[in-house]
Amino acid sequence: MNFDLRELILIFLRGLCMGSADIVPGVSGGTIALITGIYERLIHAISCIKFSFLKPLLKGNMSDFKAKLIEEIDFELFIPLLLGIAIAFIVLAKVINYLLDTQTAYTFSFFLGLIFASAYILYTKLDGFNIKLIIITVIGILLSYIFVGLNPIATNHSLIVIFISGLIAICAMILPGISGSFLLVLLGQYQYMLNALNSRNLIEIIVFAIGAVIGILGFSRLLNYLLERYESAIMAFLIGIMLGTLRLPIMKITTTINGSWIPCVILAIIAFVLIILLESKFKKD
């Protein structure tokens, strides 16, 4: 395998951005993957993992195992990307926890700008809107608006619940516009898993990760199929999802703001501009 160092660094930076987004309720790592031009490659690479390399491994044929492993898994993508995501999770878990507790309105103002910019960029990737796509977008808005308004589900923190939470959340995390972290909030697992990550609770982290791996391997195949055949409709629906999820930061801002709205507006604009600059930067690369 011949790795391009510059490409590895760019993928690592994408991983950092995706991990930072995935840990924030209301923001999707899938959106960041789309913005930075790596989304389709990621979904395709995941859907191509069929574990055919296990057969020669079980037979003890190491040369065939190595050949099939390299052929089936895009290591040049997964190694730097997952490393970036993991580092972002570890570094930002405490920071996000602190900001959500102490600077709620300002933090969600920033999130609002991120989400709105993501929806705009997704719109620019469409060839154009027609009645069908507008209807699909409106459906996405309504569904996500209702979903965001749901109260968090009271549940326990048993290993089976953590496993299922990982399975469900990862499916949302790879979809642009749908926040896996917000699903964890609704499942009553977000704060708990954030604390587990901060305290390095390996058993719960591993169980969650196993659920996530199983979920992403199954869901990526379906998503890859849909994107190949109904890309415009999927994108329009995801734009609606993003616009509908704006209900979450707006609710948080209006209920926790203490003082002037001006800093909130400024932070939202800064976030919007950052996403636009990020998208233009990776488009050039």
Rank of each mutant, 00 (worst) to 15 (best):
L227D: 06
D22I: 01
N198V: 02
L175S: 06
G128S: 14
I121Q: 10
L81H: 07
T124D: 05
F282L: 00
S63T: 14
F111I: 12
C171M: 13
L197I: 12
I134R: 00
I11M: 04
I90N: 13
L175H: 03
L99F: 15
I135V: 15
A67D: 14
K59V: 03
G244I: 02
N224H: 14
Y192W: 06
I139E: 00
L34Q: 04
K66T: 11
L57R: 03
V273K: 06
K55D: 09
T245F: 07
V91P: 05
L217H: 09
L150S: 09
K284A: 13
I262C: 07
F12W: 10
E279P: 02
K55V: 12
S199N: 15
F282G: 04
I253H: 12
E228H: 13
S280I: 00
I87M: 03
F219C: 10
W261A: 12
G128K: 03
S260H: 13
V213M: 07
T36P: 09
Y106F: 06
F53Q: 07
I153Q: 04
K59Q: 05
I269Q: 08
F78G: 12
T124M: 10
V273G: 07
V265E: 09
S158G: 15
L81C: 11
I135C: 08
I275W: 06
L126E: 02
L167P: 03
F182R: 00
Q103D: 06
A196D: 11
R6F: 14
T255S: 15
L99M: 14
G218H: 07
N201M: 11
G26A: 12
L114V: 02
C171I: 03
S28W: 03
A271N: 00
L222V: 10
D101W: 00
A196S: 15
I234V: 15
L5W: 15
T245C: 08
I266C: 14
S118C: 01
G218P: 08
T256H: 14
I257E: 13
S260G: 12
T36E: 08
I168T: 04
W261M: 12
N258L: 04
A271E: 04
L82I: 13
I214P: 00
E279R: 10
S232W: 01
L34Y: 15
N130P: 09
P263Y: 13
V24N: 12
C17H: 01
I257V: 14
K68V: 01
I216P: 09
G60M: 01
E279K: 09
Y98V: 03
F237C: 13
I170E: 01
I70F: 07
I250F: 13
I131P: 00
I253K: 11
A45S: 15
E71N: 15
S47Q: 05
